[in-house]
């Protein structure tokens, strides 16, 4: 299994464990650029390198972040990007721990950055976008690997 596939397989597990079991695979697309509505980015750096990101509508982001955090929906407005960056960081951390334990691949993470283009020095090539449906709306997770992955 490629590391990209491993990432997405473990992502569905993370969604089920930490947010809700209603999340399910919806679709996947390939692109040469990041979706314009990506609101948080985080680099995986080390023996495997990739840029990860999250995108979804404001409505879905508010609902999903409320479900994830347990904070009232009205209080999530304006901070859903911070809340969902916590989930991205949590999942990415679990992923690199599994890479270390299962395939002796050592990595770390960069601090999440918000909005705009990914502030990354990673020379990425292809962008993989996987959409997940849920009772709270659709959320997209993005991973862009370097050419050699």
């Amino acid at each position: 299994m490629s590391k990209k596939e491993q990432y997405f397989e473990e992502l569905l597990q993370s969604l089920h464990i930490f947010i809700d079991k209603s999340f399910s695979y919806k679709s996947e697309s390939v692109s040469d650029s990041f979706p314009e509505d990506c609101f948080v980015f985080q680099d995986i750096i080390g023996e495997y390198t990739a840029i990860t990101a999250v995108s979804c509508s404001d409505e879905a982001a508010s609902k999903i972040s409320a479900k994830y955090s347990g904070i009232d929906l009205s209080e999530c407005e304006g901070i859903y990007d911070e809340i969902l960056s916590d989930f991205l960081n949590l999942h990415n951390g679990r992923f690199i721990v599994n890479l270390s334990n299962n395939s002796n691949t050592e990595c770390s993470l960069s601090p999440p950055v918000f909005r705009g283009e990914p502030a990354s020095s990673i020379d990425w090539r292809t962008v993989y976008i996987r959409s997940y449906d849920s009772d709270f709306g659709v959320i997209n997770f993005v991973i862009a690997e370097t050419e050699n992955e």
């Binding site: 949590l90 990415n92 951390g93 679990r94 690199i96 721990v97 334990n101 990595c107």
Partner: peptide
């Protein structure tokens, strides 16, 4: 307290 609980970390 971290998500990056690898042996190296």
């Amino acid at each position: 307290v971290s998500s990056v609980g690898t042996q190296i970390h």
